[in-house]
Design a protein around this nucleic acid. Structure first.
Lengths: 234, 234
DNA sequence: CCGCGCTTGTGAGCACGTGAACAAGCGGAA
DNA sequence: TTCCGCTTGTTCACGTGCTCACAAGCGCGG
């Protein structure tokens, strides 16, 4: 039960499903914490906030890891899902831009905990370069290629002002990074072989504002419950 | 040209479209900054990262604000879109939980700039209550109902640990808040008349990890370009 | 006034995601 | 061994969103 011997021909997992896998995984961790040996799709749906049919369909993309009449083995499913998500190893992260947000992200311990240790910090401002944050010395963005190689960086987080974001992204890509999480409020253009996701606080607030406005104006107040993850996304 | 006289019966705007409106608005601001009087759907598509057909269809939900053969009047469209998004007035925000992330959000100036001034801070920790952050004194979460009334709070931001998030959400809703942005890595349950959006950094990283893993493993490296805000999720 | 080029607004077809319903299949009890 | 309840895995129908394609319509030049 340790490893799947013949990893069956990789099915193509829909993007919408992929975006839910981390939620399932978190729910499984919760279930494991409660000491449950197995979990039904219905219970997993409750924990993750989706419906049971969707859960079963999503899990079926990973393989047939359930037992009819019983449910899913929590530990085994957790393992399979971690493997599929690539969480069996740590992915090193670099944060670019150490203003307010970048600073907070650098100090935020949650990344390492979840397998994404912050291995480097870069900035373009000479006044910031050289300062130490949470045990890491900020280096100049020009050093990115060397840093990525030395620290085996896989993921870049952009927390620069919008005006600098595209250039930083280009540099990251030049340096070999293929996964980027963008916090800058601007549209980035990247080659098709680079994964790009974005988190835009202002956009989220404006979407809330839209529904709030409608609610105030007339009687139609339906809005998305648990959206934005995306997809997307969201 | 100042205001729409007979606001035509509010069309139902698809959720996917709503999530793109803020991006269009930002692109319009950019165009306005360049001094362009009008903008074509094609140019707007470039700026916002979508395709022209989608832009036109999205804009058509707001009304027929374009001129065939010419394009859209930048200023006018900007105004209409702001109105639709409810950005003609400020929405006061309360931040709950002043740990690392909450602290950063409280110090982040971008909110007020974009019409979402942070009007109050609350926490449950007696050691935090009473401290001052960015000119605001942190109050106890028990005071929420009074705070919401006094400060006319419309939006709640949850930046607490996951374990406290649901209770804080319940309290916000009791206090009259109907729009919540959740940063805590947990699923919140809210009544159908409450809008809930979530930002989960760990989830975003794990999604990136999935595609990175696939890319390392085999030759299929296609991932979503500009996903997640989204729609759903995405 | 007339015709031409350009851009919007929309209708139709298609792809994707969702939810309900059900057959398949496992485990335990008798 | 056989039966029965339970849960998965999958099929099917539906709704939503996306893209293409094109008619409608505006402004300009002649």
């Amino acid at each position: 039960m340790a490893d799947s011997p013949k990893r069956q021909a990789r099915r193509k997992i829909p993007e919408a499903t992929v975006s839910r896998l981390p939620i399932y995984l978190r729910s499984l961790l919760e279930a494991a914490g409660d000491g449950l040996p197995t979990i039904s799709s219905e219970r997993l749906a409750e924990l993750s906030g989706f419906n049971a049919a969707k859960v079963r369909k999503d899990l079926s993309y990973l393989g047939s890891y359930g037992t009819r009449g019983v449910g899913y083995d929590v530990e085994y499913l957790q393992f399979q899902m971690s493997r599929e998500l690539g969480l069996t190893k740590d992915w090193h992260v670099v944060i670019a831009g150490l203003g307010n947000l970048g600073h907070a992200l650098a100090n935020y311990g949650g990344f390492s905990e979840r397998g994404f240790p912050v291995a480097a910090l870069v900035d373009a401002d000479p006044k910031v370069v050289g300062t130490e944050i949470n045990g890491l010395v900020v280096r100049h963005v020009d050093e990115l290629p060397a840093i990525v190689a030395e620290e085996d960086i896989a993921i870049g987080i952009i927390a620069t002002p919008a005006s600098a974001a595209q250039e930083v992204a280009d540099r990251m890509i030049d340096a070999g990074i293929r996964s980027i999480l963008n916090f800058a409020p601007t549209i980035l253009t990247v080659p098709p072989d680079v994964s790009l996701r974005k988190v835009d606080l202002a956009v989220e607030l404006q979407i809330l504002s839209f529904y709030q406005q409608r609610r105030s104006g007339d009687g139609d107040g339906s809005a998305s419950s648990e959206a934005a993850g995306s997809p997307r996304g969201g």
